[in-house]
Design a protein around this nucleic acid. Structure first.
Lengths: 224, 224
DNA sequence: CCATGTGAAGGTATTCACAGCC
DNA sequence: GGCTGTGAATACCTTCACATGG
């Protein structure tokens, strides 16, 4: 059935499929079955078919999915079919690493500017991007940027996000380990690296010292 | 009711509560209500109470939760009640940033070693940790390390994880953008930064160019 | 009274099994 | 024969409403 609402969990998996398809496309094959893609990306084949079923029929029965076409379609759905400009705020260790991070290009994401309040850092050029003073965030209004990555200390996160929201940024990836709020028109996704690592010990099978008896090995959902 | 299985989604939120409690403890208060904690961490109050209900009665009706006691209890459940040693493999830009990342300590996580194959990097000291040759991963067997962070290129991820599994690592946080497999006794959580950023455009309310009509503003689950 | 803890209801996502089509 | 697409069944999680206890 076409055009049901796409579940959030499906949206979460679409980039995984896209990543797999982009790598898979290099292998020279033209079509791929849900089973083959499943093996490649680590999701069950029926889950893949179900996910794809939410937005029409891309597959050919008996053949599989046309890799190129499917990748294009997923990009369209995720709105990754245009180059999108992003900026980085907070050029600390993590921020610098993100500026040099090669993975964004594959999704059509392009970091075009970086900001920091530290005079020592302003003027530095990292991976072709010049670090500007944070006060110049205001100039973003006219630069056609829709995305921002926030890698500032916790105490500066909320004010940074307020500022970005004011100048028309519409999506923010936040690395600061705290709750932040933004206007409805701005979507924020938060990523707390330490928290992810902190989740690991719970799932590690017993084997060290005193262990509690609760941890179920269940996890149907997102294994990671 | 005590001792039902703890839902995965609850486990995912426990570190959020812990983070909030640790910050909140500094404010001098001794007790906190589910409502106050809810406002602070950005989760609904009944969700918090439900989550806590899976592992016994920590609260006092009419008063709230004892911050110190609750934090200790959450740490115990997440098995963060001991200092855990972690290692980093892959000292590139991201790896270096992670070595300097100050957030792990709060959860009792301590990065005690780092590995890379690049001779240029071996011997360097970052944040008090000396970079060793990757061949020395084998020496981990006797160093009492249970966690590893993998920040190597995609092509090296699987072999790195195989190696870590062999020497007794039991939990891995993987930053390489690909599917990886590990023995059952090893829990892997994967984090693909570019993929998170790629998820943003889908959720950004219309306002630019041609937009598709599907994006529901639903998202009951994890807003981020 | 105030705030917790929890059955019950409601909603969402996963999993199955197979009809339908190439 | 092989593979997709999907209703139905199942499992899980969220949300509500209120009994229960300090």
């Amino acid at each position: 059935m076409r055009y049901r609402r796409i579940p959030d969990e499906t949206v979460r998996r679409l980039p995984i499929y896209l990543r797999g398809l982009m790598v898979s496309a290099d292998h020279g094959r033209e079509h791929i079955s849900s089973q083959a893609l499943a093996d490649f990306v680590g999701v069950q084949s029926w889950q893949i078919r179900k996910d794809f079923s939410y937005f029409g029929d891309f597959g050919t029965r008996g053949v599989g999915y046309h890799i190129e076409k499917l990748a294009r379609e997923i990009k369209r759905i995720l709105r990754l079919d245009v180059i999108r400009k992003a900026v980085l705020v907070g050029v600390g260790d993590l921020g610098s690493a993100l500026l040099s991070y090669p993975g964004f290009g594959g999704y059509g994401l392009d970091i075009v500017a970086a900001f920091d309040i530290d005079p020592q850092k302003i003027g530095a050029v990292i991976n072709g991007v010049c670090v500007e003073d944070s006060s110049r965030i205001d100039t973003l209004r006219d630069r056609g940027v829709s995305l921002a990555i926030v890698a500032v200390p916790r105490t500066a996160a909320q004010s940074t996000i307020d500022r970005l929201a004011q100048v028309g940024i519409r999506g923010i990836l936040n690395f600061a380990p705290c709750k932040v709020i933004a206007p409805h028109r701005v979507k924020v996704i938060s990523l707390d690296i330490a928290m992810e690592l902190a989740r690991l010990p719970y799932y590690m099978p017993a084997g060290g010292a005193g262990e509690h008896p609760l941890a179920g090995r269940s996890s149907r959902h997102r294994a990671s």
